[in-house]
Design a protein around this nucleic acid. Structure first.
Lengths: 193, 193
DNA sequence: CCTACCGATCGGTAGG
DNA sequence: CCTACCGATCGGTAGG
């Protein structure tokens, strides 16, 4: 009999929390087995390697990020600032909903191996490119100041990376509030205009 | 005879580049020995453990960060926006000058062990607190808009973390230019005011 | 700085 | 999902 189909997702979920906590390399298959309450060798009836787990985590997050942008792009947003805010809110919504996976995605992807790692980097670049286009549009519309759009995107996306670490799901702030505050900060700046 | 005193700094330097590239856990003492052109066992005449190397990297960076703020605080800056820019420029100067060490500092500190890791976290919090105070001052002066200073600091500092990865020392942009662009972006926002 | 090692742990397989 | 393993590699020590 094949195992219950959700046993593998359980495994991925526990691996995600383990990798987040200790890092991919420092997490052993025996650690993971213990979390699952089975022997290390038994893990291999659900997955074929440790690498496969990291792949699943990283690429399922990547897919979520892309799907979110695709959803937004389904409607036209003539105002670049509004579209950028939508992008940021979607991004924040994903990383607050999947905090552990987001941290693995951001911090452990470098332990992917070829050919997956090249694919991953390509997807990352493509994701950044879509943000860059919105900023570029805003500049051309005269809505945004003239800045290096590439640096602006790196700064913007990087500025969100503390969230999976620092966001407290039990705190007063809801993901949407955090997203609003940050996009407001990035778009209008600290200054009181 | 004791070894030349700079042999240990060479070791730390090569370990920094190794840890940056592969991560602390995935870097073996044999990898490091090979880089140094000696046997793994010989490393231990210069250091007493792998952990000690990580400690030196993380805390020497922490010291640089604090010294930079202390230097700025030696003169009074009544204008919070100007002081904040000074802080940001100093921070950027350090991470562009010590790119590998900065990445190890940001990404590998979690592999520190007690009691060092508690000390490290305390220092990080104290560093963030000093930025927070400048922002708080700016808000009270009416120069900055009313925002959550804690979130603003996390966002601000996080937004600089792409630099050691993305900054090309052979590119056209000098550290000071990057620093200016980013602090301008964070203080005035993307919008063309 | 080297040779010669050590005990521990790693990811993973065979065969049920 | 388990027992019983494997070869490889790990951080580190003893003794020169």
């Amino acid at each position: 009999m094949s195992p219950r189909p959700n046993r593998k997702s359980q495994l991925i979920e526990m691996a995600t929390s383990l990798f987040q906590e200790k890092g991919y390399t420092a997490s052993s298959m025996r650690d993971l087995a213990q979390k699952m309450g089975i022997e290390a060798a038994s893990l291999y009836s659900h997955i074929k390697s440790k690498q496969e787990i990291l792949n699943e985590i990283c690429f399922s997050m990547a897919n979520l990020f892309f799907e979110a942008l695709d959803n937004i792009d389904r409607k036209p947003y003539p105002d670049a600032a509004i579209k950028l805010e939508k992008y940021i809110l979607a991004h924040v919504a994903i990383i607050t909903k999947h905090r552990d996976a987001a941290q693995v995605f951001f911090n452990e992807w470098k332990h992917l191996t070829e050919p997956d790692i090249s694919d991953f980097i390509k997807k990352r670049d493509a994701y950044e490119f879509r943000f860059r286009q919105v900023i570029q549009d805003g500049i051309e519309q005269g809505q945004f100041a003239h800045t290096d759009a590439k640096i602006a995107v790196l700064t913007l996306l990087s500025s969100l990376n503390w969230i999976p670490n620092g966001y407290d799901p039990k705190g007063k702030l809801k993901p949407e509030n955090i997203g609003k505050m940050i996009s407001e900060l990035l778009i209008n700046g600290l200054k009181d205009n």
